[in-house]
Nucleic acid binder design. Structure first.
Lengths: 349, 349
DNA sequence: CTGAAAGCGCTTACAG
DNA sequence: CTGAAAGCGCTTACAG
């Protein structure tokens, strides 16, 4: 069933001029107020430096003409853009939402605007995108994950722009870093399941880099604990509910006696819960399920989902503080932070 | 259980100079290659206009110096930023993800970069943000929803920047529009449930503007169909799974005989499904559930979720085409598009 | 095929 | 408290 477009509304108004009239400039405001351009600039930036009478005249002119300062021109001259650019792999999951919001809020409080670009999980376009970002000369760059390509690293390093890599860790950060070890996270989840008596472990994982690192930590820990190698199901990132269902089905085909599954995302885990229920498997009785992300629904599912929480808000706030400090010429005392993770114990495992 | 930060890695490298060295400029490349600046510019933009020998020398200099053109300076002179800015209420749900991705892809194909800003559902900061956006003089602006504040409208109109309002409709668009009528959508869902024999309807809705319009259309249709007024549960946007659970609980308290619920988001609907299951209510037997958004998990839940689909990909592509055409000086023949919606019939209703 | 001059719209640095 | 001049790093418009 679908609705046909409604041709009656909205009405097409008269078309705008295709070549828009030029925007109002400082020059025009200055002329109208009978002052110099620099005085207008001061009224807008440092009003205390201007006499009250002059200020009033200028403000009238600004309002009358609808003047909106051209921040690009100002930024070019002052080499301060007040703009921070952040790259995220995807805006479709909820995983990065917390960070995006706290980054936006914290930087806004420090006088910066934040804009996000979507990269995708494929690294192919990364260098090109980094070039476009650096070309805009933002006051800071926040990256999700660490940069591997030599070209990308060179570009960022040479730019002199403050950079924060997030959500991951590396012995060779480009500049600043707020992350965690996904290997150790995988190890911890394995130990957690083992401590609760699970012996036939499995992993359903997205094929992105950080998920792969979690899987590796998990499998290595299983090996050290003397367990048989966990069964693996890889699915293409970004991961989905459907993949959780088909992933569990395939897993039970390959390793029918599996008693615990670690999923690389909560959405996969939700799919696993759905599939288990339709098969009459009890969770956690027959199968323990652990997710990753602690996205909003995890706490209120039935059974509630045991998962791993990364403090996205703290990542965003820390990255914001790093960038703002640097942009203001302060030095950042400890520019590399491991924010760790926590396993949130709930009903599913 | 949580992991302490690991102090051993990554090692802090020697601190970067707090005042970064100035970036390489066109001047330096030109000097090294022994040509004028304009020749370097041409090698980068229109290489066919330059002799092969010169081109090679310039390219060597560009590579050797790691030159990254300053797009801000270029944009100031040419008044073409090749940048489109888009505003979304939230990046936390999946609802706008499809649009964000298709907008990014389509505009990238036309030579534009897209950056997203997060607004929040509260309109309070909107004007301030619009001012910051207009101040950057992008080649286009994509908005989620329509702009109501007179100040915001004036600002955008006066800027002369191509603007596309999306996801909603209005008789008075600022410029271009790709949206749909949420009232008509609500009506259609009501008619759908009525046609399937449901008579005691209810709505659990986020308190954002578009959700409220869906609710209004739904309730008015119920009135025209001679049904009693649907029970209403309002929850603060952005909506969540937890709100779906508590919302259904409150609803059944207030209107125990409810036989169908329209939820303003699929995430709410998932919460309703969870709550219904824990209460031993069968869906759709005891209770029909309809969502909104058709986000990824809707098709593979058990029961699968009947919902309303908006073609976010098409919104993004259409908005991209509108902006790119305008930026290239073409006129847009039909700048107001109603993309409609479709009810996706599945098991839950 | 190549270049010298001017200018995009601001802010800096200096002067008074 | 206010302003004239210079300049941020490019591209345009013109010339040869």
């Amino acid at each position: 069933m679908s609705a046909p477009p409604d041709p009656s509304r909205p009405p097409d108004p008269s078309p705008l001029p295709s070549a828009a009239r030029a925007a109002v400039t400082l020059r025009e405001v200055a002329d109208r107020a009978g002052v110099s351009m620099i005085t207008v600039s001061r009224v807008l930036k440092t009003p205390a430096q201007v006499s009250e009478a002059t200020r009033a005249r200028v403000q009238e002119a600004v309002a009358a003409l609808g003047y909106v300062p051209n921040l690009v021109a100002g930024g070019l001259r002052s080499s301060r853009s007040h703009l921070v650019m952040a790259l995220v792999p995807t805006t479709r999951g909820q995983l990065f939402g917390e960070m995006m919001q706290s980054l936006t809020d914290a930087l806004h409080g420090r006088g910066f605007q934040v804009m996000f670009g979507e990269v995708g999980y494929a690294a192919s376009r990364e260098d090109e995108l980094l070039r476009a970002i650096v070309g805009r000369r933002p006051d800071g760059i926040v990256l999700t994950g660490v940069v591997h390509s030599p070209e990308g690293r060179r570009l960022l390093l040479a730019s002199g722009i403050p950079v924060v890599e997030t959500w991951d860790t590396t012995p060779t950060p480009i500049d600043m870093l707020v992350g965690l070890s996904h290997e150790r996270l995988g190890e911890a989840v394995c130990a957690y399941l083992h401590a609760r008596g699970r012996r036939r472990l499995a992993v359903i994982s997205g094929d992105d880099e950080r998920a792969a690192r979690r899987q590796r930590g998990f499998s290595e820990a299983a090996h050290r604990l003397g367990l048989e190698a966990p069964a693996l199901q890889w699915v293409p990132a970004p991961t989905s509910h459907a993949q959780g269902r088909t992933g569990l089905a395939a897993l039970l085909e390959a390793a029918p006696r599996t008693d615990a599954v670690f999923c690389s995302s909560d959405m996969l885990a939700l799919g696993v819960l759905t599939e288990a229920r339709t098969r009459g498997l009890s969770v956690p009785g027959d199968l323990a399920v652990a997710g990753f992300g602690d996205i909003e629904f995890a706490a209120t599912l039935a059974p509630s989902l045991t998962t791993v929480r990364i403090d996205g808000t703290r990542i965003g706030q820390t990255a914001a503080a790093f960038i703002a400090d640097r942009a203001e010429g302060l030095s950042v005392a400890r520019p590399h932070v491991d924010i760790g993770f926590s396993i949130v114990e709930r009903e599913s495992a």
